[in-house]
């Protein structure tokens, strides 16, 4: 597994321009979220100034309808969205990889049942399932929101991991392990998993951008986390308090722009990795 990760992170990889630009954008946003508050120590929940002031030297991104600082909220929102995105993606990945490995390796009836389940969840739109589940919880902490997003977003991972497992399980090195008397569990962990590691890494990146977008969607319909700030939460209040129709652009443009920048960077990183692993896509 470790050997594969080091294969992913070779110097050659960083010659892909798209990847460098995306990493730079991501790091800038991370810095804004994690280092920013030490340079700009304003409480995101405190009322710090006049209501609805446009950006100025005192308030770099202005204030909202309660007089709270938008930049401070944005920094807290980046952390909140990243936390939910990272947790939800980990949950999806765990479910998707587990189902994919078991279905692909075990085959037969187990495969049929698991793929039927996967296809059913795939056919039901995840955002609708998320809204439906979240509607029944009055209080939603970031972990609950992550779980709701995680348990509805795994099917495409399961399908991809399954088809990769299917093509791997009849290779010679797997047969050798079988002849050596290794158990199914050992074979999956030692022979199959390392070979899908690069895909799993890519899937995590994509799941994370999807989860952050899903969090924003849930928040916009009023079902995001009820604890702490996220980019979706900022957009929700801007929407509910009519920021757009009242021309308060500094309230709704920054959180959306940061979200899109993060999601697009993650997607570009995944695309760059895909091109790196599939030379066919790189062109002749």
């Amino acid at each position: 597994m470790l050997r594969n990760v080091s294969k992913i992170i070779s110097p050659e990889l960083f010659t892909i321009k798209k990847l460098d630009a995306s990493l730079a954008a991501l790091l800038t946003i991370f810095a804004l979220g994690f280092v920013g508050p030490t340079i700009y120590p304003v409480q995101p929940t405190a009322v710090v100034g006049p209501l609805e002031t446009p950006p100025s030297q005192l308030y770099p991104l202005g204030t909202d309808a309660y007089g709270k600082d938008v930049l401070a909220q944005l920094m807290a929102g980046i952390r909140g969205s990243l936390q939910i995105g990272a947790t939800a993606a980990a949950i999806s990945l765990l479910i998707g990889v587990l189902i994919g490995l078991v279905a692909g390796y075990k085959g037969k009836i187990i495969d049929n049942l698991l793929m039927m389940l996967t296809d059913i969840v795939l056919l039901l739109p995840s955002i609708l399932l998320m809204i439906l589940v979240a509607a029944y919880f009055k209080w939603r902490d970031p972990l609950l929101v992550s779980i709701i997003i995680g348990v509805t977003s795994w099917p495409w991972v399961a399908r991809a991991v399954r088809s990769q497992t299917l093509s791997l399980k009849n290779r010679e090195f797997v047969n050798l392990s079988k002849m050596a008397g290794l158990s199914d569990f050992q074979i999956v962990i030692r022979d199959i998993l390392p070979n899908v590691a690069s895909y799993i890494f890519m899937a995590y990146v994509l799941l994370m951008s999807g989860a952050m977008l899903a969090e924003t969607g849930l928040s916009m319909i009023g079902l995001g986390t009820t604890q702490g700030a996220t980019l979706g939460n900022i957009l929700f209040w801007a929407q509910v308090l009519e920021a757009v129709r009242r021309g308060l652009w500094w309230w709704f443009i920054p959180p959306g722009a940061v979200l899109v920048a993060m999601a697009a960077s993650l997607l570009m990183i995944a695309t760059a990795l895909d091109e790196y692993f599939n030379p066919r896509l790189r062109g002749s």
Binding site: T216, M220, I253, G256, L259, V260
Partner: peptide, 14 residues
Amino acid sequence: LVLSQVPYYWLAMI
């Protein structure tokens, strides 16, 4: 790539 990651509702706001 960027467009595909824009939420409809945020473009709607803009």
